[in-house]
């Protein structure tokens, strides 16, 4: 699974992208798996109400299925314009 991080999530985790070996069935499972792996993930994902999720470049939420998915992105609410 390709995982992307933007803005302060990128800074807290220290990566903009990584390849993760996972059997996680949902985004929530992936978040729990990463958070258990290392402290920097637990810190970044501490408040998921401040995190937005896209699976295969479609905006969704933490309950989304990862079955058949190849890419997950985590980012704060967008602040363009």
């Amino acid at each position: 699974m390709k995982v992307l991080y933007f803005a302060w999530l990128r800074e807290r985790i220290g990566l903009n992208t990584e390849q993760v070996e996972t059997q996680a069935a949902t985004v929530a499972d992936l978040v729990a798996e990463l958070s258990a792996r290392e402290e920097r993930y637990a810190v970044a994902f501490a408040d998921m109400s401040a995190v937005r999720v896209a699976v295969d470049q479609t905006m969704t939420d933490i309950s989304a299925s990862l079955v058949g998915a190849s890419e997950v992105a985590f980012f704060p609410p967008m602040t363009g314009g």
Partner: peptide, 29 residues
Amino acid sequence: MDFLKTRAPFWKKETTPDGARWVDARDAD
């Protein structure tokens, strides 16, 4: 403009006298 504010994947980071900080999304947007 209204959709761009909430749907386009941009994130602003400002440099202030207290250091750099990520701009929060606004409810008004």
